[in-house]
Simulated scan of single mutants.
Amino acid sequence: MGENLQFAQDSAQAAGFYLLDDQDASGLGRLQVMDRNWTVCSREPGPGTYPVDMKVTLHAVKAGVSC
């Protein structure tokens, strides 16, 4: 949390997770076209140990917007 979306995606992939989704945490339904301009607020599933074939959803807001 708190990282830019691109870094979070890269980190997830480096850990072996490739089934990734991202959502606009502001509720406006915007697409994250420029991943570096978005900040991750939360993720599903939460902290823990999971199989790498599990879907990971990153909820992010536009940079400069509070979570």
Rank of each mutant, 00 (worst) to 15 (best):
F17E: 06
P47Q: 09
P51Q: 15
D21F: 14
A60N: 08
Y50P: 02
Y50F: 05
Q23M: 13
K62A: 13
C67S: 07
M1D: 15
A8G: 04
A25R: 15
M34Q: 14
H59W: 15
W38Q: 09
D24A: 07
V40Y: 04
F17T: 06
G27P: 11
A63V: 11
L19T: 12
L28V: 07
V52T: 11
H59N: 10
Q32N: 04
R36M: 07
D35K: 02
F17N: 05
S26A: 03
M1H: 13
V52S: 05
G16I: 02
Q9D: 04
V52W: 07
Q6D: 14
A60I: 02
S42Q: 10
L58W: 05
A12F: 10
Q6L: 14
M54D: 13
Q9I: 07
A25Y: 13
Y18P: 09
P51H: 12
F17P: 09
Q23C: 10
M1Q: 14
V33K: 14
N37W: 05
L5V: 00
F7L: 15
A63T: 15
T39H: 03
Q13G: 15
A15T: 05
G2P: 14
E44C: 12
V33C: 08
P51S: 11
R43W: 03
A14K: 13
Q6Y: 11
A12L: 13
T39K: 08
Y18L: 09
S26E: 02
C67F: 01
C41L: 00
T57H: 09
V40W: 00
G16W: 01
G48K: 01
T39L: 07
E44F: 07
Q32A: 05
G64V: 02
D21P: 01
S26Q: 01
G16A: 03
Q32F: 05
V56D: 12
T57W: 09
D24C: 03
G46D: 11
N4S: 10
V56E: 14
P45F: 06
P51I: 11
D10R: 02
Y18C: 04
V33F: 15
V61Q: 02
N37L: 12
M54L: 11
R43C: 00
E3S: 04
R43P: 00
N4I: 03
D21Y: 12
A25K: 09
